[in-house]
Computed example of a mutant assay.
Amino acid sequence: MPVQNLFSGDATKPETVAPGLSRKVGAHSDNVMVVEVHFEAGTTAPLHHHIHEQITYVMSGKFEFTVGDKTYIVGAGDSLYKQPNIEHGATCLEAGTLLDVFTPQREDFL
């Protein structure tokens, strides 16, 4: 199977995950994946954990993140690292978009 090097944002439709929360899976391989996540204000991504390393870059909006036993208020230009299996979640304070990078890829998102 040929490698797909370009994932056009215009060609990919967001998938509704929960009320006020949608995502678009971007470029990915077995080792890495990028996902654009859109939040409406007041939407919460409940505390959860997974085996993947994750970096979140805040593209827009304002969020309250819990990572382990710490809570952070973050906005555009901020980023967070989440090591494998750490409990984390977020509440959107002002509507915005996150860019999540996972390693390895989230097969459950495909």
Rank of each mutant, 00 (worst) to 15 (best):
H50N: 13
H50A: 11
H50S: 10
I51V: 11
I51T: 08
I51M: 10
H52I: 00
H52P: 06
H52M: 00
H52K: 03
E53A: 10
E53N: 08
E53V: 04
E53F: 03
E53I: 01
E53T: 07
Q54A: 05
Q54R: 03
Q54K: 05
I55A: 12
I55S: 10
I55V: 15
T56H: 01
T56V: 14
T56K: 03
Y57A: 05
Y57G: 02
V58K: 03
V58I: 15
V58C: 00
M59Q: 15
M59P: 01
S60H: 02
S60Q: 04
S60P: 05
G61V: 11
K62D: 02
K62N: 09
K62Y: 04
F63R: 06
F63N: 02
F63H: 02
F63K: 03
F63P: 02
F65R: 01
F65V: 02
T66E: 08
T66I: 11
T66Y: 01
T66V: 14
T66C: 00
T66K: 12
T66W: 05
G68R: 12
D69G: 04
D69T: 14
D69R: 14
D69Q: 14
D69L: 11
D69M: 08
K70R: 15
K70F: 13
T71C: 00
T71A: 02
T71E: 06
T71H: 00
Y72R: 11
Y72M: 14
I73D: 13
I73L: 13
V74G: 08
V74N: 05
V74C: 12
V74Q: 11
V74A: 13
A76R: 13
A76G: 14
G77P: 01
G77R: 03
G77L: 06
G77T: 09
G77C: 05
D78T: 09
D78N: 14
D78A: 11
S79D: 12
S79R: 15
S79Y: 15
S79F: 15
L80K: 09
L80H: 05
L80Y: 06
L80V: 12
L80Q: 07
Y81R: 12
Y81M: 11
Y81Q: 04
K82Q: 12
K82H: 10
Q83A: 15
Q83W: 00
P84S: 09
P84M: 02
N85I: 00
N85S: 10
I86A: 03
I86K: 03
E87M: 03
E87C: 00
E87Y: 00
H88Y: 08
H88V: 05
H88A: 07
H88I: 01
H88C: 08
G89H: 09
A90C: 13
T91Y: 08
T91G: 09
C92T: 08
C92Y: 07
C92N: 13
C92F: 08
E94D: 12
E94F: 03
E94W: 04
A95Y: 05
A95W: 03
A95H: 05
A95P: 03
G96C: 10
T97N: 00
T97W: 02
L98C: 08
L99C: 13
L99A: 12
D100H: 10
D100I: 04
D100T: 08
V101M: 06
V101D: 01
V101Y: 05
